[in-house]
Write a protein that binds this DNA or RNA. Structure first.
Length: 468
RNA sequence: GCCCCCAUCGUCUAGCGGCCCAGGACGUCGCCCUCUCACGGCGAAAACGCCGGUUCGAAACCGGCUGGGGGCACCA
């Protein structure tokens, strides 16, 4: 239950698909503000569209929010279950003279819409001013809002400022359908009131709706919530975010190897700022988040910047934790693969060198692949090219040199440098063949760190195999 | 068509009348470090959409234009 006097925020998705980037950011802002103010963050599933709402989508929303680390207070409210209450309010609106029953036929509705297009006048049924005795019983009526025809409705928006709508442009929207089911417009207002919502932070696309919703609120004499309409997120090309760009399920980003903390940081900075701060861990965000910092213009989604922030948080993680994340990623990618404790130790040992070479867990996984199995790695084309007969000869000399050395990075390195001098080659002339034989690739963490991570036995196995 | 919102480097943004011939970050390009690739360090190119006002002074305030976006259902 909400503590009295504290803000009540809500996130109210309709379960017709997954939780995408835009929804995730809206949820994040609401959550942040609730946490910041000691308020309540509630969840409402707007499942009144029975055709399009699915249990899978509901699960996807819960999972998405959970991955994002956005925990909600109280039990989620399911809008469809509250239809009776919505009907009750629709009737109350009629009783108060702020709504009316309209018995228009399909043809009449068509005519009204055509007129609306032509004259730019809002839809108003002829039943608006008819008495109850004029009812035609063979047509199931809808209940429409009886909006004022003059004056203006003011939306006091904390993000967009004061926005005025002339009432003559606002039409008599349907509140209750002819089958007695409530429309979204009605349900939102009633639910927000019943849930005690004090702040409505939602997408910009609802700004026009706010004026209409306010008319219901005024009709019922309910308190106005604080509105904040956050600009939408656009794709990289500036067009509306679609499935082509980034309107992927938020968990798709987990699968692409992003950390949820990085995602939170990135999404926060998309449309909100605190001076020049770029790296804002969640704990800091909770301290700083405010409504004033929300920008007014739409932002484009940019994967490059997400990459960079993600790289930061990956490096920030301690090596043991990152190793755990990496192993989970590796095993998710190849479910039949089982990485044991030996591999964990190897990964942990190499992690320092590995993590500065990856921006995502997927890249980290790729860089770490040579550590997942025993035996000589398969060479890629470049690595095969590096392993010339001369290179193989150098590897053999290297093996002979280090055979009796303590297995320690700096010792191995200094002895290799001595060997290089003796052979009249550069350190790189030896290091590259070693790297190729050890990892199967031409790029990796420093070779001496690789030797240590692999351990003497495994390293020598790989070197001898590829030097042959 | 009608209603509404927005407008600073390629991108995210700082700026709330003088601190700005505009700052930070990502990206890009150089250089340094270096066994590879990265990380890191240093440096560079890069923006106030246009036109009018207001003001001693405008990126900031006002108006118009242009350009983006959103909304106009018995969808949410």
């Amino acid at each position: 239950m909400a503590k009295s006097g504290t803000p009540v925020l809500r996130f109210a998705p309709s379960p017709t698909g997954y939780l995408h980037i835009g929804g995730a950011r809206t949820a994040l802002f609401n959550w942040l503000y609730a946490r910041r103010t000691g308020g309540t963050f509630r969840l409402r599933i707007e499942d009144t569209d029975r055709q399009r709402s699915t249990p899978e989508a509901i699960a996807a929303i819960f999972n998405g929010l959970t991955w994002m680390g956005l925990d909600w207070d109280d039990e989620p409210v399911f809008q469809f279950a509250r239809a009776e209450r919505h009907r009750e309010i629709a009737e109350a609106m009629v009783a108060r003279g702020h709504a009316y029953r309209a018995y228009d036929t399909a043809e009449e509705l068509d005519a009204m819409r055509t007129r609306q297009k032509a004259e730019g006048k809002p839809v108003r049924s002829r039943w608006r001013d008819a008495g109850p005795n004029d009812a035609t019983p063979d047509i199931a009526p809808v209940i429409r809002l009886k909006g004022p025809t003059s004056g203006e409705t003011l939306v006091r928006d904390v993000v967009q400022g004061d926005v005025r709508f002339s009432n003559e442009n606002l039409d008599d929207m349907v509140l209750l359908r002819s089958d007695d089911t409530p429309t979204y417009m009605l349900a939102v207002v009633v639910d927000d009131f019943d849930m005690g919502v004090t702040h409505v932070l939602r997408g910009d696309d609802h700004l026009n709706n706010a004026a209409r919703q306010l008319q219901i609120i005024h009709g019922m004499g309910w308190p106005e919530p604080v509105y904040g309409h956050v600009p939408l997120i656009h794709g990289a090309d500036g067009a509306k975010l679609s499935k082509r760009h980034g309107a992927l399920a938020v968990e798709a980003y987990r699968d692409m190897g992003y950390l949820s903390e990085a995602m939170r940081n990135y999404l926060l900075r998309l449309g909100w700022s605190h001076g020049d701060e770029e790296i804002i861990p969640t704990a800091q965000a909770i301290e700083w988040f405010n409504l004033e910092g929300i920008g007014r213009s739409p932002a484009r989604f940019d994967l490059k910047k997400l990459d960079s922030i993600n790289a930061h948080y990956m490096r920030q993680l301690d090596e043991a934790a990152l190793t755990t994340e990496l192993m989970a990623t590796a095993e998710r990618l190849v479910p039949e693969r089982k990485l044991g404790e030996t591999i964990r130790a190897r990964l942990n040992s190499a992690m320092g060198g590995l993590k500065s070479r990856a921006k995502t867990l997927l890249e980290l996984n790729e860089a770490a692949e040579f550590l997942y199995a025993d035996g000589p790695p398969i060479l890629n084309a470049k690595a095969a090219q590096v392993l010339s007969p001369e290179a193989k000869a150098l590897i053999k000399k290297f093996i002979a040199t280090i055979e009796n050395l303590p297995w320690e990075s700096s010792e191995l390195e200094s002895q290799t440098k001595t060997l290089a001098e003796k052979e009249g080659v550069s350190l790189g002339d030896i290091a590259q063949p070693l790297r190729a034989a050890l990892t199967g690739k031409t790029t990796s963490p420093p070779v001496f760190d690789v030797l240590i991570a692999l351990g003497r036995e495994e390293a020598l196995t790989r070197l001898s195999a590829h030097a042959a």
